[in-house]
Amino acid sequence: MSLRDIGSLWQMAQKPSRLIIGLMSGTSLDGLDMALCRISGHGKETTARVLEFETAPYENAFKDDILRIFSKKTVDLEKLTLLNEQTGNLHAGLINAFLKKHALSPSEVDCIASHGQTIYHAPKRLHGLAAYPDATLQIGDADHIAVKTGIITLSDFRQKHLAVGGEGAPLAVYGDYLLFSDRQEDRILLNIGGIANFTYLPSDGDTAKIVCTDTGPGNTLLDALARRDFSRPYDRDAEIGFRGNVNETLLTRLLEHPFFKEALPKTTGPELFNLDWLGSFLKEPVSGEDLMATLAQLSARSIAEAIISIHKPAAIYVSGGGCHNPLLMRNLQQLLPPYTIKNFDELGINPDAKEALLFAVLANEAIAGKGTAIAGLPAVTMGKISMPG
Rank of each mutant, 00 (worst) to 15 (best):
I316H: 02
K283Y: 01
E346K: 13
S280R: 09
T268A: 08
L327Q: 14
A293Y: 00
T340M: 08
T268N: 11
L275M: 12
L335P: 04
K342F: 12
Q334P: 00
I349F: 11
S309F: 04
A293R: 10
L275C: 05
E305W: 02
G288L: 09
F273K: 11
L332T: 13
S319M: 06
D352S: 13
L335V: 05
R301N: 11
Q333L: 02
L347T: 11
L282T: 08
E271D: 15
M329G: 05
G269K: 03
S309L: 10
E271T: 13
G320Q: 10
L347E: 09
D345S: 15
A353Y: 01
K342D: 05
L328I: 13
K312F: 00
Q334N: 15
W277D: 10
N274D: 15
G322L: 08
G279T: 07
P338R: 07
E284G: 00
Q333G: 12
A314T: 08
L298T: 10
D276C: 02
S280H: 07
P338D: 14
L327E: 09
L275R: 11
T340A: 10
N325F: 02
I307F: 00
D352Y: 02
L327P: 00
M329Y: 02
I341P: 03
S309Y: 02
K283D: 14
I303V: 15
E355W: 04
S280T: 13
L282W: 05
Y339Q: 07
Y339L: 05
N343A: 14
F344L: 09
P313M: 04
I341D: 07
P285V: 09
V318L: 05
L272Y: 04
L282N: 05
D290W: 00
A353G: 01
L332H: 04
T340W: 01
A300V: 11
V318E: 03
G321V: 09
P337Q: 07
S319T: 08
L272A: 03
M292H: 12
R301Q: 14
E271S: 10
W277S: 08
Y317S: 04
Q333E: 15
G269R: 02
V286Q: 06
A296E: 12
I349T: 15
S309V: 13
F273M: 12
N343Y: 03
G279H: 10
V286R: 06
L336F: 04
E305A: 12
C323T: 14
L272Q: 14
I303F: 02
L282Q: 14
L275E: 10
K342A: 11
